[in-house]
Design a protein around this nucleic acid. Structure first.
Lengths: 197, 197
DNA sequence: CCAAGAAATTAACCTAGGTTAAGAAATCCA
DNA sequence: TGGATTTCTTAACCTAGGTTAATTTCTTGG
């Protein structure tokens, strides 16, 4: 895949965040990560202090519980910045892994250097800020939904909010996203089928 | 309370986020909200499109579920910026209320105007960005803990992480913070008491 | 300092969702 | 295309934590 295309995709994404950015400040070469369906960009516990950009494809963030059970934190479709803000900013090991659900293309830059160079540009700061606001708002909404709604309601909301994911993503991942087992999700689907005729 | 003191506290907090800020850009008068123990700064469902700063005291963020049950999203001790990023940025109604757990003093500015003026300053952008990173990281950690650990473990972690809150905050709020009922928390505490002699 | 309300505990019972297990359906290669 | 693997469903049983309700302990305002 052509690096120029990837770079253009990356810049277009940032432009979409609402501010003009002067990329002259940036003098770093990107790293390419073609991640195949099923494989991981990184695993829980590893270091991931880079800025990752998912150019194309679909991934999920996966945490593993003390008891060894998987939990899907979120699904992300490219083009979008992905990764762990915490790991990137603090240099601590990630709390979740990122698994490709389709063949994907990811690029990355080392965050510390990238930020040092780009923070000279106000447009970049404003864009990155907008990105942080976006992902924080998404978390606020998700936390709220988790607390307020039953598993059944969370499933229905998922289907309404992500009709296309509902088709592409294995049910077990959807179950782990709404916080229940695949068995419990089956029961819910069964019940819904009956009550809807 | 002296406005100059509150303003100084506000600026000191931002300075603590790591960047020098030129406050000359700002020409807005602050609003004062002395919120007494037990009262709310705002309730779930209201508009809260202002930048709130908790100068002193302790508050909790409270969501109410479909079934009418309360859930404590987080505890915050001043001095710190508080409020809903989502409500502030998007102008949508808040997903949770903020209740004072002690007598508090809160000040606020209208966010849109505040941001318009202050976004001219790179130091402010960088500081606000740092704040967003901080709160996002906290959410990442909390989400991870919720999924990975049992209620008992979450209680023990809470006690370890916030020894001072453990003393000041009613048990029912701690219960709702770790996602269980006060009754369930009592059972856990009982069990721990027995097993520790 | 006391009465009234609020907070915490305990007990008895209930239920959503977890667990194990086994079969059916879908998917994936070779 | 067919055997193998993975995914999904169903059933039977179990358990953490919810619910209701009664009792005790703490707070707090007058």
């Amino acid at each position: 895949m052509d690096q120029a295309v990837l770079e253009a995709s990356f810049r277009a994404y940032f432009l979409g965040l609402g501010h003009d950015i002067d990329w002259q400040y940036l003098s770093l070469s990107m790293m390419l990560h073609p991640v195949r369906k099923g494989d991981y960009l990184f695993h829980q516990g590893e270091l991931a202090n880079r800025l990752y950009f998912l150019h194309s494809g679909l991934v999920r963030y996966v945490g593993v519980s003390d008891a060894g059970k998987e939990f899907t934190q979120t699904f992300v479709k490219g083009p979008r910045v992905i990764g762990s803000t915490r790991a990137m900013v603090t240099g601590m090991p990630v709390l979740f892994g990122i698994q490709a659900l389709s063949d994907t293309m990811v690029i990355s830059y080392p965050w510390a250097e990238f930020f040092q160079q780009m923070s000279q540009d106000k447009g970049f700061l404003a864009s990155y800020m907008a990105f942080l606001e976006q992902i924080f708002i998404a978390k606020e909404e998700r936390e709220s939904a988790f607390v307020k709604h039953s598993a059944e309601r969370r499933y229905l909301d998922f289907c309404a909010d992500y009709p296309e994911l509902k088709e592409q993503v294995p049910l077990q991942y959807i179950a782990s996203y709404i916080g229940i087992t695949p068995i419990a999700l089956s029961r819910i689907r069964q019940k819904l089928k009956l009550s809807n005729g």
